[in-house]
Amino acid sequence: MLMYSASIAPYLRELSTRWRAGIAYLLTDQAYALSVTRFGADGTVRRRWYYLGVAAPLWIVWQLCTVAGVVVGTRVPESLPLSFAVPLTFLALLLPAVTDRAGAVAAVVGGAGAVLGADLPLNLGLIAGAVAGVVAGVAVEAGGDR
């Protein structure tokens, strides 16, 4: 979330503090990934409204589904691999986010690093992998300039 905040922050600098506080409150993985991909590809998009259009429905559905999960969660059969739907959403968001060679390197190193660090406590493998991916991507980009 700290990395999401830093990564989306450059696109939101001209907004008021109140707007940015609201955006931070609604920040989820999916809202972040969709918005930042769109903001990077399309400079003309009206960012606050695009973000709100993504994040507000997500927030509402999240609340409703949390209630649904509390009520019927224990009755969902264990064999139904619902948890696999979550990485699938990230996968669908990942591919459009890779737009060049540096992005591809960042993704490969990020994924491999997270697997290597999967045993680390507190989700540190995810953080270490992501940081390694960004560093590797920056290195490739710098190498390509020469």
């Binding site: 696999f84 968001l93 990942l94 540096a102 990020g110 995810l126 940081v131 960004v134």
Partner: peptide, 24 residues
């Protein structure tokens, strides 16, 4: 430089979320 590094965050983070969930 910071802006370019931050632009790589989505690819790196999303991959770091997906790959372990599939492979491990």
């Amino acid at each position: 430089g910071l802006e370019r590094a931050l632009r790589l965050v989505p690819a790196a983070v999303l991959s770091a979320l997906v790959v372990p969930a599939v492979v491990v």
